Structure formats: C-alpha cells, structure tokens
Amino acid sequence: MYVWPCAVVLAQYLWFHRRSLPGRAVVEIGAGVSLPGVLAAKCGAKVTLTDNSELPHCLTVCQQSCQMNNLPQVQVVGLTWGHVSPSLLALPPQDIILASDVFFEPEDFEDILTTVYFLMEKNPKVQLWSTYQVRSADWSLEALLYKWDMKCVHIPLESFGADKEEIAESALPGRHTVEMLIISSAKGSLLHL
C-alpha cells in the first residue's frame, strides 16, 4: 500500500502530540490506508476510521490496516461526506477529526465541511486536524469556513519536525507542497494539548 505524503505529515503531527492522545475520541474521515488513525490508536486514542460508504473497497482497506496493526478495537464505519446517515448520527462526540488530503476536489469541499460541522455540533470543542497537498492557488476554503462558522489556523510543518524538502522529493509527479490546518468551530475554543 502506498502512503501519501499528506498522511505521513499528519502522522508526524500526531506523533509529536502522542502524549495528549490517550483516551481521546478520534475519527478519521476519508481514511484510506488509515496511517494517521492507526497511529492515534497505537498512541491510546479511541479511534473510528471512516471512508466512503458507497465504495466498499475503501472500507476493506481500512479494515486490513486495522488487522495488520493488531487493532481489533478500532471501528470502521461507512460515511459519505455531506450525507446525514445513520452511521453519522451514531458517531459519539469526538475530540479530534483527522483528515489527510481530503481537500482534493473543490466540489467535495462543502460536503466535507458539512460533515465536520455536524460533528462540531455534537462537540463544539472538536478540531479538524488536516493536511493537504497544494494543487492550485485558486482553491480556497475561506468562504466555506465563514459560511459554516468555522475558523482555521495554519500549522507550520517545521513546528513539529516535518521536513518540507523531504516531502518535495517524493516520487509523485507535480508539486508537493503539503500544508497543515486546524479547523474548529468559531464558537469553540482550541483543544489544549
């Protein structure tokens, strides 16, 4: 399985904050191979992995990651961004939402933030920890964050030991600038680590 640079950077951020993870409720959306979620579980968080309910193969990949890492306690749930489904309704309040490179297609941005907003309604202090690969200077979340009453803080990769030069040297074609954001409800306060 290939692990994308964004997942590696998000995992590095989790590792940097590993002492604050035990007992925290964490959900990873668009989990794929689930590196950040698996690491959070290994660090003692109560983790739920989610991926598109309309693509069973994605859920199988999440389950395989749990099996390979001996994590039978991690739940894998089908969740389609922007849909209020029984699976979304059943999720308990979360402390942290992980999202590695989910801001890939601009037409998905609002569906992602709609799902995040729903989770923020259950716990106004929840934060979305997200890494993404910069693909176009024209793509922005700013208007959608304002619409959904959210705020965003950019986290410099150097602040937790991630190396931008190493990421840029990956085997992927094109530009590899990876950024990290923490998104929270404009009403909520920042999670103290």
Rank of each mutant, 00 (worst) to 15 (best):
A99K: 00
V33L: 08
M68D: 14
M68V: 05
P93R: 06
E121N: 10
L191N: 06
L14N: 01
L113N: 01
S184M: 10
A90L: 05
N70L: 08
P72Q: 08
P93I: 10
Y146L: 13
K187N: 12
L98P: 01
V178S: 01
W4H: 15
C6Y: 00
M150Y: 02
V61H: 03
P72R: 07
W148Q: 05
V47Y: 01
E179D: 10
V153I: 11
V26I: 13
I112H: 01
F104V: 09
L193D: 11
V84H: 13
F16W: 15
L119A: 06
Q133K: 15
V178L: 02
L190F: 12
K125H: 10
S130M: 08
E54G: 04
M180C: 15
F109R: 04
Y13H: 12
D149T: 11
L59G: 03
C58H: 04
L119W: 05
V178H: 01
Q63G: 04
F16Q: 06
Q94D: 07
L14T: 01
G37Q: 01
G30E: 02
E121Q: 14
S159A: 15
H83E: 14
A41G: 04
R19L: 12
L193W: 14
L91H: 02
E179T: 08
Y2D: 12
G161R: 11
G32K: 00
D138R: 13
K46S: 08
D95G: 06
H176A: 02
S130E: 04
